[in-house]
Design a protein around this nucleic acid. Structure first.
Lengths: 231, 231
DNA sequence: TTAATTTGGAACAAAGCGTTTAATTTACCG
DNA sequence: CGGTAAATTAAACGCTTTGTTCCAAATTAA
């Protein structure tokens, strides 16, 4: 049985929050674009370039100049009129805005196919996310190595979170156990979850933040777009 | 050199499309939610339930009842007043809307960490996406098996696309080669790309549809939300 | 000094989105 | 048989987001 509906359907119906916008005044679309700006800037930085204009950033991403400027001006003034933006300066500024100007300790739950791939993903480390633990409930997985990290039993989750001051967790477990693990993560003090399990892991008004990534959903969105793009 | 800016910066500046909404009248947010509705319905179907109400679907996903109904009514009338929706009927209807009521032939480019994980992801097969080929440019990878599929050299990409009538591709290659591979895919006749490479693979007005999934960007969004949720 | 370039910020219109309200249909109960 | 409750449909409303335009301010180059 691949899926188990873990939450009963007749519990108290509390009003769902209408618009879960984390930071007022800043649209979520802007936040997503900020991450894309950072990605382009880091690429430019490697090429040795010093300065960049909003129009050049916009062209790289297929956007409008003024949209780039307005996104940036949501957070402050980073450019110089008549000149443009310092690439290194703007890079650091965006990192500070996104919260990746420091290091985040992250744990990974689930050492299946997806978990193993994620543990080796260089992009995480490059952006300041440090993997400090991998957990699994399957005894046959425990003790095996994922890169430099050894898979620990799920029982040690709470102690690791406390000891390593873990704030973020990547959830790559089957749908049937995602809800339970998410609850344990929240109770242990984790404040953010990147959820790859194809189920709703809702935060019931607590301080827990969840970002969902459902790969099947993304493929379905693609299929819809393909079908509807050719009449 | 991990990254190479492949497109020159001073080519003809064509006006970027302001709002690339694939299907007019239907918001993209609605399409995303349709996939989530389908996910919940398939879960309910396995539990043997026959009927469901919009309020129950909404509660499972933390949404408002009327939003669920309005999303569905963008595409037709699937419910029965005073009764609700037939689970099997609504499931089939949404699959037809998303285009997953049939089988899609998909190829995977890149057999690295992420590619291997994706090839084994059951969610794809369950939703009608059939993996008919895996390609890599690394000679040491070619001939190895990913599940039941053997990794082929990148040279055979075009012939496979034609022979198997491949429409969708999953791009899981390094950033440095993503743009070139994407161009080859488009030239070969692929109409949709699910792009995991952390670069912009823009469709220059052609019939190519791209859905981007950047795992580092998602983690950055999470970090921002966590920082800004606690003042 | 003048002209060209570029950011910053306000203003604005349009679209998207979520909720509310009214109308209609069905099921169930007395 | 009649009435009430439940549930979808459809339209209307208001808010937010979004993308653009315009203008002032600042810098550079001639």
């Amino acid at each position: 049985m691949p899926f188990e509906p873990t939450d009963s359907d007749d519990e108290e119906a509390e009003r769902p929050s209408p618009a879960p916008n984390p930071s007022p005044n800043v649209p979520v679309a802007t936040v997503t674009r900020m991450a894309l700006y950072l990605r382009e800037l880091q690429q430019l930085q490697r090429s040795g370039q010093q300065r960049i204009q909003s129009s050049a950033i916009a062209k790289r991403l297929g956007l409008n100049d003024s949209l780039v400027r307005r996104d940036l001006s949501c957070f402050g003034q980073f450019g110089q009129r008549g000149v443009g933006y310092s690439i290194t300066g703007l890079t650091k500024a965006i990192q500070a805005i996104l919260g990746t100007d420091r290091s985040w300790n992250v744990i990974l739950i689930g050492s299946g196919n997806l978990g193993r791939a994620l543990s080796g993903y260089r992009g995480f480390n490059q952006q300041g996310f440090r993997l400090v633990g991998v957990f699994d409930s399957d005894p046959s997985k425990i003790g095996t190595k994922l890169g430099t990290i050894t898979v620990s039993p799920l029982e040690e989750l709470e102690s690791t979170v406390e000891r390593e001051k873990v704030e973020l967790a990547i959830l790559a477990v089957p749908a049937s156990s995602a809800a339970i693990v998410a609850q344990r993560l929240e109770d242990a003090g984790v404040t953010g979850i990147l959820n790859f399990a194809p189920v709703t892991v809702r935060s019931p008004g607590s301080g827990l933040t969840v970002v969902d990534v459902d790969l099947a959903v993304e493929l379905q969105r693609l299929a819809f777009a393909v079908v509807n793009s050719r009449g």
